[in-house]
């Protein structure tokens, strides 16, 4: 049977949005292949209702495995155990970080083919074909699987959430054995929020700053511009500057940060890496200031300014203020 096993990431009693998208996508594809989509969750005392709720997104069955949360290798063990029971032709993951690690580990365990950063999947002749953008999104490759099981890892926000309202799904406990190496990693603290708790998801204008700001104090230029716009404007950041401690994690856009779609997104000193782009590409208007005319961000901005942000931002702040006053 051509069933699809979908990984569902959960944290603090909620299923990750990208996993809801993956379950929805899995259900759609499984129907086209004449099979079912099943979801799998792993954790310590996963609530039954949480698992069962995936039925609403199209899962026909939900497997729950008991094990340490937030690490990839226990899930490789659990998913391999589920797949060895037979019936699964594909394993599907939504965008994120853990899914990449689990999917790749599972590919190694099963000798399976894997495609990551997948933006679209279609069924053709009883098989799935994955579309994966490559080379900085300048081309899209199509990938088929020669192996018994194919592994598909989606890009962040690639799969649409579809609440079909099919009701709760039956939940089954999955027993599996933790491999020795999976037992050699231990989560000490998870989900630490570094920096202030700021809200960027609700803002209608975002002034986003990156490594090009040069130093933590560089963010003052973004904050002043945000103030000039006033109203519902906030300052956002890239992973590079959050990792460097220049700005709070809560303000980060991208693969391991927030997904935003403001009316205006204005970037200063941001290169436009794919992991950043996936979190903001639905913004209505994209403006970018970058001194490098080859920066990838210009490929997807509506207005690009090639120049030094240190010269442009202060004057832009004054001009916006003047416009508002006049």
């Amino acid at each position: 049977m051509a069933n699809i096993l979908v990984y569902a990431l959960h944290y603090n009693g909620a299923i990750n949005k990208n996993s809801l998208g993956a379950v929805s996508e899995g259900a759609k594809l499984a129907a086209e292949l004449g099979g079912e989509a099943h979801a799998i969750l792993l954790g310590e005392n996963v609530p039954q209702e949480l698992a069962a709720s995936l039925g609403n997104y199209g899962a026909k069955k939900v497997l729950v495995a008991e094990g340490p949360e937030g690490l990839a290798q226990p899930l490789v063990d659990a998913m391999a155990a589920a797949i060895s029971g037979g019936g699964y032709k594909y394993a599907l993951f939504g965008g994120g970080l853990l899914g990449f690690e689990i999917g790749a580990g599972l590919a190694a365990r099963l000798g399976a083919g894997v495609a990551m950063e997948v933006t679209g999947v279609r069924a053709e002749g009883g098989e799935l074909i994955a579309e994966r953008p490559i080379l900085g999104d300048s081309a899209i490759s199509e990938i088929k699987y020669r192996s018994e099981v194919g592994i598909i890892i989606g890009r962040l926000n690639a799969f649409e959430i579809n609440e079909s309202g099919a009701g709760v799904a039956p939940v089954e406990q999955l027993s599996f054995e933790l491999s020795p190496h999976a037992g050699q990693a231990k989560m000490l603290t998870r989900g630490e929020q570094r920096g202030a708790d700021v809200d960027i998801e609700g803002a209608s204008i975002l002034i986003a700053g990156g490594r090009g700001l040069g130093k933590a104090e560089g963010f003052e230029l973004c904050e002043q511009l945000a103030q000039a716009f006033g109203g519902n404007t906030a300052v956002a950041a890239t992973r590079a500057v959050v990792d460097a401690g220049w700005y709070p994690y809560a303000a980060q856009i991208g693969q391991t940060g927030k997904t935003v779609a403001p009316k205006l997104y204005l970037a200063a000193g941001i290169s436009g890496a794919i992991q950043h782009k996936v979190g903001m590409q639905s913004s209505e208007n994209i403006v970018a200031i970058n001194k490098d005319s080859n920066a990838p961000i210009f490929e997807f901005s509506d207005l690009g300014i090639v120049g030094d942000l240190n010269k442009i931002l202060p004057k832009l702040t004054d001009a916006v203020k003047a416009k508002k006053a006049g």
Binding site: Y11, G70, Q184, T189, G191, E192, V242, D243, Y249
Partner: peptide
């Protein structure tokens, strides 16, 4: 490392 919900600290035995 930073993962999807913030920063995680993980203890890992060698070899790794």
């Amino acid at each position: 490392r930073q993962a999807e919900y913030g920063y995680d600290t993980v203890q890992i035995q060698l070899p790794a």
